[in-house]
Design a protein around this nucleic acid. Sequence first.
DNA 1: ATGCTGTGTATTGTATACAATGTACTATAT
DNA 2: ATATAGTACATTGTATACAATACACAGCAT
Lengths: 223, 223
Amino acid sequence: MAKLSLNMDEYLPLRDVVFHALRRAILTGELVPGERLMEIHLAQQLGVSRTPVREAIHKLELEGLVSMIPRKGAMVAEISEHGLKDVLEVRRALDAFCAELACERMNDEEKERLKEAYEAFAKATETKDTTVIAKADVDFHDIIINSTGNERLISTINNLAEQIYRYRFEYLKDESIHKGLIAEHKMLMDAIFSKNIEEAKRAASTHIDNQEKSILSQIHFKD
Amino acid sequence: MAKLSLNMDEYLPLRDVVFHALRRAILTGELVPGERLMEIHLAQQLGVSRTPVREAIHKLELEGLVSMIPRKGAMVAEISEHGLKDVLEVRRALDAFCAELACERMNDEEKERLKEAYEAFAKATETKDTTVIAKADVDFHDIIINSTGNERLISTINNLAEQIYRYRFEYLKDESIHKGLIAEHKMLMDAIFSKNIEEAKRAASTHIDNQEKSILSQIHFKD
DNA sequence: ATGCTGTGTATTGTATACAATGTACTATAT
DNA sequence: ATATAGTACATTGTATACAATACACAGCAT
């Protein structure tokens, strides 16, 4: 059984502390898809009462990381191959849209940071540490997404990204794709810098296409 | 004070019954933006305890209809002009994408239903009943959205639509725009029938543009 | 052996009690 | 008169008690 722990440093409502703890456990694979989440059990493990645990689980359900059946209980959400394709189809459209907006809206300071993030990612791939690589990749894309200045777009994309984070993490372990990823980042970045909207959209779209291919070739789905 | 009531017919967890009651009250304007939602108060009004009310409020917060401040309480979410533009910007992109997918994926049965829905909307505008008109409009667009077959896309768009439902309801009251809406529906429908992707995307985009103009001209925002 | 029924247990759903916190108001000192 | 501290109250946060439900298993009948 996973050994969950709470970070009590932050002064937040317990439900949020529990939420972050569970969320992290799910995204890192500590809690695997299909695993049941029982309130009393988790509450005892975390040293709190059922109430904040319930509220955290409900929040995770709304985020799509947990699926619940009334009067039955909650379990870590599984994603089917079809569900993964659906998520990526929406992401492809929204990432392309982000790229378009970034061409129009990214300011100089952000461009500078994007260039740094690009280089940081290239460097990260040399470490062979998947956690470091994943973080560098997120950093790079976050700069682009945030440059749109559209909070709703940002949160929508982040929610979609969260759905597949667990699977994307797996595919980043394949070192053979790193070179291609760096090249794709460069294409996207250069297109944004030169405000070439069509090229930026194509680069963003291709980037998702390749992710999909890699994930599907590596992960085996049950249904 | 609004007189909320519960529909106990359905055999659902109380939290869901309360959720639907509050959601409906917010979307219809019975509960106005900025109004505080106090747990004990609502619980007494609805004849339940605080627990299901709390859970319903949290769910509404995640849906974006309620905003909460820890240890302070919850209130019906207000949307700023900027927030509205953000929502519509994402919807524009996703509706155009839906139109594109609809061109490729809509089957004959759905096309038939779309045609019926188009005519039902035209007929609905004659009733001058905003509720009827709004429903007919939703029906028309739902057929297009559902024809994509992408559950994630459907739920994402529905969530965005919900954010602005209250405001869209207002603008549908303006009869002078009805003729234009019908024409826009026809353009979108015909483009889908003829599988003209570029035209469909343009029609969907224009449809949102006009909504934005109408809403902004009619609603006065505080900030 | 198989299917049905009843009972017990585990778990979620709901209510309520108690703790912590934030806000408004009052009294007091300057 | 104004600012500040303190206190009372309203409200949310958390824990726990109780109710309802679902599931598993045993016992019985066929």
